[in-house]
Write a protein that binds this DNA or RNA. Structure first.
Length: 300
DNA sequence: CCACAGGACGGCT
DNA sequence: AGCCGTCCTGTG
């Protein structure tokens, strides 16, 4: 069947999607936006989303999603992989801004911003504070095994990301075993605040970016950087520019040629990249981290 | 043994 | 308002 420009084929074990463009699994899953996709020997990836386990494989313009059906593709995976958005157009516009950005876009040509569950993104990015990706993945895995729901896929056990209730019901000593360290108290407090409706994560479409951001920052363990990550990577808001050490370094290296405050970098980015600021951040981050851009400062 | 890598937070100026 | 020490764990 045909669906929004894609050709869909359904088999007993998978859905095949043809006419895929501007998508690369390594770029998308390893650009720091998500922590639960595991690369397999055959270059496919296995992940757990909304309690469903799938394996995805991309060959040329053919995406194979194992462990799903057409109904779930239309209701879940089409949105999750942001397949309705024209990344070709975004890349074209960004590439016209300047040649360095064009190079970053070219390098990460297959990045797509996933629409992750906002509760999961919130806890994952609280864990990301002062932390590196492999360790973040390990901690998220530990928490999911501890209180997520088990699913068997291809004779292997996989665990969904825990619900708010499941985390609130953990006692602190138990949570500490997941190795989140000083972030453990933030995780518990934030889970309590979400359960108590101090914040309504699923109604951000009704709020402005500034309002949603301020609500997130009021949570325990959430500062500006993490709030921006949560908004951008759960598909809530795209006019944010998360600035971590890598983005700070690459921005200083390319545009400022000197030490620059986060505040000044954010102001510049919003003016300079306009409404594509969130997408620009992701291409720049991936480019900087993969190529270690800015680690050796060429100014001072 | 030590140095280093990563953001939030709280205390200080 | 900005600066800086502390928080925790894995790696080299």
């Amino acid at each position: 069947m045909n669906y929004k420009g894609y050709e869909l084929l359904e088999y007993s074990d998978r859905v095949v999607v043809k006419n895929i463009k501007d998508f690369n699994l390594v770029h998308t899953f390893e650009c720091g936006q998500c922590f639960r996709w595991i690369k397999q020997k055959d270059s496919s990836f296995i992940g757990v989303v909304k309690g469903k386990v799938i394996r995805v494989k991309l060959t040329q313009d053919i995406l194979e999603i194992y462990g799903t059906n057409i109904e779930d593709f239309i209701n879940i995976w089409f949105d999750y992989f942001d397949l309705g958005r024209d990344y070709g157009l975004i890349k074209e516009k960004l590439s016209q801004i300047d040649s360095m950005l064009a190079e970053a876009v070219q390098f990460g040509w297959g990045i797509r911003l996933l629409k992750q569950d906002i509760w999961e993104a919130l806890i994952c990015f609280i864990i990301s504070a002062n932390n590196k990706i492999p360790r973040i993945m390990k901690i998220v895995q530990n928490i999911s095994i501890m209180c997520g729901k088990k699913t068997i896929f291809k004779e292997e056990e996989h665990y969904s990301f825990p619900t708010v209730e499941a985390i609130v019901n953990l006692d602190f000593e138990e949570l500490l075993k997941c190795k989140a360290g000083f972030r453990s108290k933030y995780i518990l407090q934030t889970a309590k605040d979400v359960l108590d409706k101090k914040i309504d994560l699923y109604n951000f479409s009704k709020s402005s970016t500034v309002e949603a951001r301020n609500e997130l920052i009021a949570l325990s363990g959430v500062g500006e950087k993490i709030a921006d990550c949560v908004l951008l990577f759960s598909g809530s808001k795209y006019d944010v520019f998360p600035i971590d050490v890598w983005v700070k370094r690459v921005m200083e290296e390319i545009y400022f040629k000197k030490e620059t405050s986060i505040k000044d970098i954010r102001y510049f980015a919003n003016q300079y990249f306009g409404d594509l600021v969130g997408f620009a951040q992701q291409y720049l981050f991936y480019y900087a981290r993969e190529k270690s851009i800015g680690k050796e400062k060429h100014f001072l």
